[in-house]
Computed example of a mutant assay.
Amino acid sequence: MTNAPRRLGLAALTLFATVLAGCGGEKSDAGGTADVASLATGSAAPSASATAAAAAAGRPQLRLDMNEDEKQRLWNAYNYCLRDHGVREIKERSAATPKGSGMISLDQSGEPKAAYVACADKLPLQPPELDEEKNPNYVIQWNDYVQCLRGRGMKIHSLPDGSGWTYDDGVADPSGGLDGAALSKAEHECTMEAFGGR
Rank of each mutant, 00 (worst) to 15 (best):
G151W: 10
E68F: 11
E187N: 15
A30F: 10
G58Q: 11
T14I: 09
L178H: 15
A182T: 13
P124N: 00
C119G: 00
E129H: 02
W142T: 12
S158P: 06
A95R: 14
G31E: 08
D161T: 03
A186Y: 13
K134C: 05
R6M: 12
D29C: 09
R83V: 03
Y78I: 03
K134E: 08
T191H: 04
D144R: 14
M66R: 00
N137I: 01
S109V: 01
S47F: 07
V19M: 12
G153I: 07
S47Y: 05
K91H: 13
L39C: 09
G24Q: 04
G58W: 11
S175M: 06
G42Y: 09
L149A: 10
E92M: 13
T18G: 15
G177D: 05
A48Y: 06
A57Q: 03
Q108N: 02
P5Y: 12
D65G: 00
V87S: 04
I90T: 11
G86I: 03
M66A: 00
A50V: 11
S94T: 15
R93F: 15
A95I: 04
D69Q: 15
A118P: 00
Q126L: 15
A172G: 03
K71G: 12
M103I: 12
N67W: 04
L10K: 08
D69I: 11
L64V: 02
L64N: 02
T166F: 05
G162H: 01
A53V: 03
L82W: 08
S94I: 04
I90A: 08
V19A: 13
W75C: 01
D168C: 05
V139Q: 12
A4H: 11
V139I: 09
N3E: 11
I104N: 01
D65I: 00
N135E: 04
T2M: 12
A50H: 08
G24Y: 03
Y80T: 07
D161E: 07
D121C: 04
D144G: 09
A118I: 01
E89A: 14
A56I: 00
A48R: 11
K134S: 11
A56M: 01
A95C: 04
R7V: 14
D179Y: 15
K27L: 10
V87T: 06
A57P: 00
Y116A: 00
D84H: 08
S94E: 03
Y138H: 14
T97H: 10
A11N: 12
T41V: 12
C148N: 13
D168V: 03
P98F: 09
D144C: 06
T33D: 10
